[in-house]
Amino acid sequence: MKVRVGLVQLRSDRDVERNLATCRKLAADAASDGAGWILFPENAPFLGADKDKVPIAESLDGPLVGEFASIAKKHGVWVSVAGLPEKCDADPNKTYNTQVLIDPQGVTQAVYRKIHLFDAQVDDHIKYKESDSVAPGDELVTHVMDINGVKLKVGLSICYDLRFPELYRRLRAEGVDVVTVPSAFTLQTGRDHWHPLLRARAIENQVYVLAPDQYGLHFGTRSSYGHTCVYDPWGHMQACAPDRECVVTADVDLGYLASVRQRMPVESHRRL
């Protein structure tokens, strides 16, 4: 049993209409290649400074989610998109960094709010402090998707979560087949850490890892690494995007997944 997935790589900026137009175009490309699930990177509709998201934050029934619901309905596919600036009722000076999973009827089926916030100095000149304007989530989120008759259990994560293996261990314990890692991974960290971390999460948890990423220069010194990719549960790279806005497709093969887990039943060997 296989499901074709399409991962979109973007170079988003502050121009929401341009970003959404590119999302629509690349979604059509993915659907024409047979994707039953299209995944967009973190900050797909808007990539500016984190504080710039506060004035445009909206609820989950707002127009930004509606745009991606329209894509799902138009092509009859599942859609996931992250980095949506969701209003935070507890603190109007902050947003959530939210991933939504939308079914082919355009209905939101799962909502994940990024747990781990990116507060780091990536080199001598560039510092990020996501927590200044983003509130952390606190819930693990999984969902069973039915994609053209194939049942797929997915666990949701976003970007900086990738550095916290305990999150993925808990998702694996929940029985997920696939994890999503939509990202805007910085150029400085991505060059050294992107592929090793993605591959490790795939191997240690025996899951497919789907990682749509931003790429290129967005504004000022803010650049993303790109290399949108898919890793299988043995740690093989199934697809990787070139340095441009594009879509890559790959197959999630549940038969192969079961074979890997049967040959090396790591989960049943856990003692801690």
Score class of each variant (00 low, 15 high):
M1Y: 13
M1F: 14
K2G: 12
V5A: 06
S12F: 10
R14F: 15
R18Y: 10
N19S: 04
N19W: 02
N19I: 05
T22F: 14
L26V: 13
D29A: 12
A30E: 15
A30D: 15
I38E: 08
I38S: 06
I38Q: 12
L39I: 12
F40S: 08
F40V: 08
F40M: 11
E42S: 07
N43I: 07
A44H: 14
A44W: 13
P45C: 15
F46D: 06
L47R: 04
L47Y: 09
G48D: 12
D50V: 07
K51R: 12
V54K: 02
V54A: 04
I56V: 13
A57T: 03
E58S: 11
L60N: 08
D61F: 00
F68P: 11
A69K: 01
I71N: 06
A72N: 10
K73Y: 08
G76A: 08
A82Q: 03
G83R: 01
P85G: 14
E86P: 11
E86C: 05
C88R: 14
C88Y: 15
D91R: 05
D91H: 05
D91M: 06
P92A: 05
T95Y: 09
Q99T: 02
D103V: 14
D103H: 10
P104F: 08
G106N: 03
V107M: 13
Q109W: 06
A110K: 11
R113I: 11
R113D: 07
K114R: 03
I115M: 11
F118A: 10
I126N: 14
K129I: 09
K129Q: 12
D132G: 08
S133I: 09
A135I: 11
P136D: 07
V144L: 03
D146P: 00
D146E: 06
V150S: 06
K151E: 11
L152H: 09
G155L: 01
R163D: 08
F164G: 02
F164S: 05
Y168F: 03
R169H: 07
R169S: 05
R170V: 01
L171Q: 01
V181C: 01
A184Q: 07
A184S: 13
F185T: 00
T186K: 10
Q188S: 15
T189D: 06
G190F: 07
H193V: 15
L198Y: 00
A200P: 01
A200I: 05
R201G: 03
Y208T: 01
L210C: 02
A211V: 05
P212F: 10
Q214A: 09
H218F: 13
G220R: 05
S223F: 14
S224Q: 06
Y225V: 08
W234T: 07
G235L: 02
A241P: 10
T249W: 03
D253S: 03
L254P: 10
G255C: 14
Y256Q: 15
L257G: 01
V260M: 08
R263H: 11
E267M: 00
H269Y: 10
R270G: 01
L272C: 08
